[in-house]
Simulated assay, not measured.
Amino acid sequence: MTSDEAPPAPEPGTVRPGGRTARVRAAVLDAAGDVLAEGGFAGLDLGDVARRAGVGKTTVYRRWGTPAALVADLLADMAEQSSPRADTGVLLDDLRANAHLVRTTLTDPRQGPLFRAVIAAATCDERTAHALHRFYEIRVAEWVPCVELAVQRGELPPETDAQEVVRAVSAPLYHRFLLSGAPLDEESAERAARAAAAAARAGAYRTTAAPPCAIIEA
């Protein structure tokens, strides 16, 4: 880029503002979450969001431009605001805390429908899908140290894939939430945490295959 060229403009919703702009962003994202929870992605109208947020429609269109851009910023904000990981010093208890957080989020009267709407939108909108993948990557990365510390303590085998262990906790909960319709209760969260911990201790998530057991001849 030459000295007289303007820098490329950031994508809508990617600049983190301060002051009044931050308050406007918070109000708009809160309103967008309400609309998604009530009517899904198809019902996400920027004019309606502006009205609910008490801001000018021009402001919303200028900052975000499209419903997909607004959802992307909403997911980024949700990732930033989500509860931090547990650090109990025991792998199973950490994974229990993770499972409890996922279950609580998906069964929340507002958050549950919001996530369902975003996931549905991600199946047909590339930008929403990218934002959803990024949200999940951030949340998995937040909990990875729990597994890495368990490896250091000797609770898990060396070369355990920490990301896969964290994903193994939430996967059965999302399956219940989206596909099976089975109850998403505390028992299911406990089972998910225990199963992931047991599989990890058995070496199921090692990044290299364990050597085959030697055959002992009589």
Rank of each mutant, 00 (worst) to 15 (best):
A50E: 02
A6R: 14
L132Q: 14
A209K: 09
R62A: 12
C146P: 03
P157H: 01
S180K: 04
R20T: 15
A209E: 08
A50H: 01
P183C: 05
A195H: 15
I138N: 12
A214P: 04
G33N: 03
L178M: 10
D87Q: 12
V28C: 00
E164D: 13
V147D: 03
G39P: 02
G43W: 02
H100W: 10
L101H: 11
Y136G: 09
G33D: 01
A26Q: 14
P113H: 12
A72D: 00
V147N: 04
A204V: 12
A150C: 00
A131V: 00
D73C: 14
A171K: 12
L95D: 02
A27Q: 08
A199M: 15
D93V: 03
A9I: 10
V35W: 04
A195W: 09
P7M: 10
V169G: 09
D48W: 00
G19D: 14
P84C: 01
L132V: 03
T2R: 15
L178Y: 03
A141C: 03
F135Y: 14
A192P: 08
Y174A: 09
R139L: 14
G56M: 06
L44H: 00
A121E: 07
G40W: 06
P8K: 03
D161Q: 01
E80K: 06
R96S: 12
R16S: 08
V15C: 05
T14H: 08
R127S: 09
A22S: 11
Y136M: 10
L156T: 02
T208D: 08
D185M: 02
A37Y: 00
A218N: 12
E11W: 02
E217P: 06
A120Q: 04
S82Q: 14
L179G: 06
G112F: 07
A193Y: 01
T160W: 05
D30I: 08
G43S: 09
E38S: 11
P211D: 12
E126P: 00
D125A: 03
A42K: 01
A196C: 05
A171E: 11
Y61T: 09
A131R: 04
I216D: 02
P7T: 07
D30L: 13
L132G: 02
N98W: 15
